[in-house]
């Protein structure tokens, strides 16, 4: 008996991603990944390419990572189930973001309802490696937690993620005029609350 150890930092199959998104989508569609024996490699490649990006959007939208894994998981499951509805396979990333944003909004709404019921939930702000960097994000999420999600989501997508207004409108499934109005409204409310927040000590930052 001589057990051996194998370093396994990169556990799982080595993904050699060469196909573009459109090809991967077509491979998944044709392989019926839902069933055993489908083109699982294509799905894994697509997941490897986009999961980090989707996770980043969700994390910044939510303000913490409590629901991060669930939302990313739900997003990709729903994407596979509804892949046939994707008309432009090359645009799979914004499509995934659209799905993720909807799940995130559901989670935000759920949190808000629970908060309304219990009134005792401390808001979990985004983590940061340096506490001095965390104060602005804490303040921002404290402000965002006080505005409706229908304003928060487009504001985050436009002002934090940098999406164009028409992209935000598509993701949020509202008109361009509506999204402009909501972002403007959110900006006003966030700024008003941030201005009302006492400035945080710098903690000796240079």
């Amino acid at each position: 008996m001589c057990p051996h150890t194998v370093m396994n930092f990169a556990a799982g199959p080595q993904l050699v991603v060469t196909d573009d998104d459109a090809t991967l989508v077509e491979r998944i569609r044709s392989g019926a990944v839902q069933g055993v024996g489908g083109d699982r490699a294509a799905f894994r490649a697509l997941y490897a390419r986009h999961s980090r990006y989707v996770a980043g959007v969700v994390y910044r939208l939510m303000g913490d990572d409590a629901d991060l894994e669930d939302i990313v998981q739900d997003t990709f499951i729903r994407a596979v189930e509804r892949l046939d509805s994707l008309r432009t396979p090359a645009q799979v990333r914004p499509w995934l973001v659209t799905i993720a944003v909807r799940f995130a909004r559901g989670r935000l709404a759920k949190r808000r309802r629970r908060h309304w019921l219990r009134k005792d939930i401390a808001y979990a702000a985004a983590a940061a490696s340096d506490p001095r960097d965390r104060a602005p994000a804490d303040d921002l999420y404290a402000a965002l937690s006080q505005i409706p999600d229908r304003l928060r989501v487009p504001w985050c997508l436009a002002r934090v993620e940098g999406y164009k207004l028409d992209e935000v409108a598509a993701i949020c499934d509202v008109s361009l005029a509506t999204v402009k109005r909501r972002i403007s409204d959110a900006q006003t409310r966030v700024d008003r609350r941030l201005l009302a927040t006492p400035a945080q000590p710098s903690g000796g930052a240079a």
């Binding site: 999961s51 994390y59 602005p136 993620e161």
Partner: peptide, 11 residues
């Protein structure tokens, strides 16, 4: 916003 966009993502 800048602090948020520049912050690490726990992924």
């Amino acid at each position: 916003r800048q602090a948020l966009a520049a912050g690490p993502v726990p992924w």
